[in-house]
Nucleic acid binder design. Structure first.
Lengths: 163, 163
DNA sequence: GACATACCGTTCGCATCCTAATTATAAATT
DNA sequence: AATTTATAATTAGGATGCGAACGGTATGTC
C-alpha cells in the first residue's frame, strides 16, 4: 500500500467527512470560477459583488455586505481593489455623509455578459451529472441548512442579551 | 422601502444564488465551529487536521494535504502554527530526508473528545431540521457535485498537456 | 558515475474572510 | 442644547487558501 495510493480525497468516516464535503465544494467552485475569470483580471469574490451591482447599482457597502453574506470589512477591502482596477466607483450619499454608495463603471457594465456567463458555466459543470429535479432537491436542502446555521449563529450569545 | 428592510441574505434569483448558498453554508459552518473551539485556542481548520491525525498519526504533509483537499503550502503554515502551540510535532522520515511526518503531542490526544464533539455538534445544528434520509440525500448529492468539480478542474488544462 | 526529472517542504506575495477597535456622522434621549 | 446611543466605513492584525519559485533530495536514464 504505497503512499501514492492516496489518489485524492478519500470518502472516509463520520463527522469530519460531512464538513469536508461542504468545504471542498465551496473551494472547488471558487477555483473553477477563478480559472474562468483570470483572463479578465477578476476573481470570484469580486464577480459576486459585481453581479449584485449589475442587478441594482448604487448600493451602500452595508447593503452589499448583507446581500453577499459577508462583513462590511470584507466589502471595504474588495471595493478598494475593484475601485483601483476601475471596475467600480464610490460616491457619497447625498443625505448621509457616513455612507458611500458603490456604482459600476463602464468597464464593468460592458463585461456584463462575461460575468453572468462564468457563474452559469460553473453551475453547469457542478451539476453536470445531476437531473433538474436533483439540483432542485440539493438547493432546497442547502437553503434549509443555511437557515439552520443562521439560527444557530443568531442564538449563539442570547444568554448575554437576556439581561 | 427603507434600506433596513434588508434583514439578511435574501433568497434571490438565478445563477449567483446557487453559488452564494454553497459559500454561505461553508462559511457559517466555519464560524460556528470556531465559536465552539475558541475556548480551547483552536480554529476549525486546525481541528480538521488534528482529527485526521487522531485517526492515523505520522502522516507526511503531502498526504495530509491530499486527505484534507488543500495544498501543501496551506498544510505547511498550519503545521507551523500547530507546532508553535504544542499540539503537534514534526519528525524526520527515516528513509526519505525530504519528508517530514506530523505526530500528535499529548496535549492534542488528551483533547480528542473535545475535537470530535465540536464537529458533531456543528453537524447536529446544521441538520437540525432535516430527517436522516434527507441528510443522506444531501451528502450523496454533495459528493456527486464534488466529483463533478474534481473532473472539471482536472480537465482544466488538458489542451496544454496534449502537446 | 552524470544528468535529467520528479518530488517534499518552504518562503513569498496576494486575495478573502474574520474580530476588535477607531473615526465620523446620525438619531434618540434627557 | 447636551449627552448618549447607534450606525457607516475604515484600520490593524490574524488565519486560511492559492500559485509561483526555490533549495534539497530521490529516482530514472544514459
Amino acid at each position: 500500500m504505497p503512499d501514492t495510493a492516496i489518489a485524492s480525497v478519500e470518502e472516509s468516516q463520520s463527522e469530519n467527512e460531512a464538513g469536508l464535503v461542504f468545504q471542498h465544494v465551496a473551494r472547488q467552485r471558487i477555483k473553477l470560477l477563478d480559472a474562468f475569470l483570470a483572463p479578465h483580471g477578476l476573481t470570484s469574490a469580486q464577480v459576486y459583488l459585481l453581479n449584485r451591482l449589475l442587478q441594482e447599482d448604487g448600493r451602500t457597502q452595508v447593503e452589499l455586505a448583507r446581500l453577499l453574506g459577508i462583513g462590511t470589512v470584507a466589502v471595504s477591502g474588495m471595493v478598494d481593489r475593484l475601485e483601483a482596477a476601475d471596475w467600480v466607483e464610490r460616491r457619497p450619499d447625498g443625505k448621509d455623509r457616513r455612507t458611500k454608495r458603490v456604482f459600476l463603471k463602464a468597464s464593468a457594465t460592458s463585461k456584463k455578459h462575461v460575468l453572468s456567463e462564468a457563474a452559469a458555466q460553473v453551475n453547469a459543470l457542478s451539476f453536470a451529472t445531476l437531473s433538474d429535479a436533483e439540483v432542485d432537491q440539493l438547493l432546497t436542502l442547502m437553503r434549509r441548512v443555511r437557515g439552520n446555521l443562521r439560527d444557530a449563529l443568531a442564538g449563539e450569545v442570547p444568554t448575554l442579551m437576556r439581561g
